[in-house]
Design a protein around this nucleic acid. Structure first.
Lengths: 350, 350
DNA sequence: GTGAAAGCGCTAACAT
DNA sequence: ATGTTAGCGCTTTCAC
């Protein structure tokens, strides 16, 4: 390789890595040699020497949660432009597994970690330990204050958007169906409901049912909240909302006439139900882009420094489940297009 | 490390890798030293020396297609038990991008490649080239004969299950809504419909509309096929079926009374619509397990040998979109549980 | 059964 | 601007 181009291996390395200035003519000869021999530099050897593998570990609670595929796509896209590869780890929603996966990734010398923590509390130990070894960015969910850089959506603002919308639509007896546990989305969304809904109805903060982030719980929760005779069900995410919608239809309850239903996340499915789910869209592309930016800063040498938190503003997507202004399949139709191939929107808040 | 255990680095290596017999007492001392120093072997150095990174490249057409997340979960789970990591690459459904991603993975010295090819024809070149460098297993979609090991679902058998079901339910004027292009699922499912439906109605093979694998096309296709006055719409996948269901509801057509609708894949969403979509479930867990097995065989040294194809048998999932026997939300409910956290079923065919 | 030593393929110092 | 040299952390001959 070096022989064919008539120079030293070091020069070849410099041409390929662009790490130092190289003579124009020499560079040309090297590149010619590279092409003619079909030479492929060995990433592993490079990684060993330069102590950087160019790989990022992505740790997700559960890839089957419909919110993550889009995030994964955006993240891989963003990281790929910097020639980084993504090793994916699924945690099966279990903090133990999460700790094991993080460990395995560190053993593989990933340059950095992108973690959507399973649980706000039970993930702290593993995340903190990992953050001490490599740059680590928390994504979408928090994990205690100051543990690491993080980029999250403003859950409180999202719930407030929903409450304002319901108020404007004349709803007066809302209730909340959320998730128990200490995942940050569960906690923040519930807290935001409780503190914001008082303006609508002083009794509303008490009308809260907690289960899990699933369609099944959404169905079950409907039977629990009906005792409150609500005219709106604010759900902590879209899966719950979809379950609620199913059960309400089964009971013959008119949505949105009798009861409005709202979700959170804007997963693709949310636009495909009938009526479509009014929901809070997380700016997934921005989430990914910000995470990539934070990572780059840390990888570019800014090792120390206090941890940064970027909080992105959500967007309300109004569909048929909360208003007759746009109910019916026609809306479901146009909504679906947007959700299936969504273009980035600009709305960072901080 | 070697010093603390009072032996040489070679011995330490042998204990950790178990590559050669080592004295019992020595081994004990080494392990004690490992624990006390919290020593973590460096995968990169190991990979450089042993020419095996323990990473597998997983190349997907589009992670946002709701069929893949489950596959990814099962695959990472299966591979993790052999201590392999998965580098994920998304191709944005584009053969060029696919070729680039495959190249990048090879440059990173992945031990093997798992590829769900974007296109049966336009992916052949990149896949063939890659298969010459590392073990490669094609997954879920074919890519020309003899190119590489592959594990696929029997699309023809799946469509036949649907046709038999429709025949038994008394449907006599079926039509087909499929996808154009040369993706193997598109081609095989259409061919199976055309060759199998003749028994039901000699005219039926001609009632075929081709678009793409999307909800939007499902909606549009309904308007095209209504001219045929069908009593059943066989869709090439669930997204199309969901779109068809939406449009039919919008038009006020009774499903399944007037028209039955069927899908393919059994994505989670298929059980959440109302009525639920009768569909053909792909045995995702088996797909993943078989792929992992084929990979292991090749990685275990069986480099040569003819390429193997494993064809798995699909399963018909009957829901409300094709029969009144189980229509309504009650069924949607039980169906949903199964789809969201599905246990492996045993049904390999070949 | 164990140790010494030679690299895997590359890049970072240092020298020129 | 380029060449020389050392060595990243491990595994693996080859001796003993």
């Amino acid at each position: 390789m070096a022989r064919l181009s008539g120079c030293s291996v070091a020069t070849v390395s410099r041409v390929l890595a662009g790490s130092r200035p190289v003579g124009a003519e020499t560079a040309r000869r090297v590149r010619a040699a590279v092409d003619s021999l079909g030479y492929r530099p060995n990433h592993v050897a490079r990684a060993l020497r330069s102590r950087s593998t160019g790989t990022i570990g992505l740790v997700l609670p559960q890839i089957t949660n419909p919110f993550y595929p889009t995030l994964v796509r955006e993240l891989t896209r963003a990281l790929h432009t910097h020639d980084r590869a993504v090793i994916l780890a699924d945690c099966d929603d279990d903090p133990m597994t999460e700790a094991a996966r993080i460990d395995a990734l560190l053993a593989r010398q990933v340059d950095a970690l992108l973690v959507v923590p399973v649980d706000e509390k039970r993930s702290v130990a593993a995340v903190t330990a990992a953050a001490a070894r490599v740059p680590l960015v928390l994504l979408d969910r928090g994990c205690g204050p100051g543990v690491a850089d993080s980029v999250v959506v403003d859950n409180a603002a999202g719930i407030q958007l929903v409450l304002d919308h319901l108020a404007a639509a004349g709803r007066r007896r809302p209730c909340f169906v959320g998730a128990a546990g200490t995942a940050s989305a569960a906690v923040e969304r519930r807290a935001a409901y409780e503190s914001g809904v008082g303006a609508l109805d002083p009794r509303a903060p008490g009308r809260v049912e907690l289960g899990e982030f699933s369609v099944e719980w959404g169905r079950a929760a409907v039977d629990r909240v009906r005792a409150h005779r609500p005219d709106a069900i604010v759900c902590a995410n879209d899966l719950i909302a979809i379950g609620a919608l199913q059960r309400l239809r089964q009971l013959g309850v008119d949505v949105p006439g009798e009861i409005a239903v709202t979700g959170f996340d804007d997963i693709p499915m949310a636009s495909l139900t009938d009526p479509g789910v009014t929901t809070v869209r997380q700016p997934v592309a921005e989430l990914a882009a910000e995470a990539a930016r934070l990572l780059d800063r840390r990888l570019a040498g800014e090792k120390a420094g206090p941890s940064r938190t970027v909080r992105l503003g959500p967007e309300l997507i109004v569909r048929g489940s909360s208003t007759t202004d746009c109910t019916g399949p026609a809306d479901a139709a146009s909504g679906a297009d947007a959700a299936w191939d969504r273009k980035p929107a600009k709305n960072p808040v901080s």
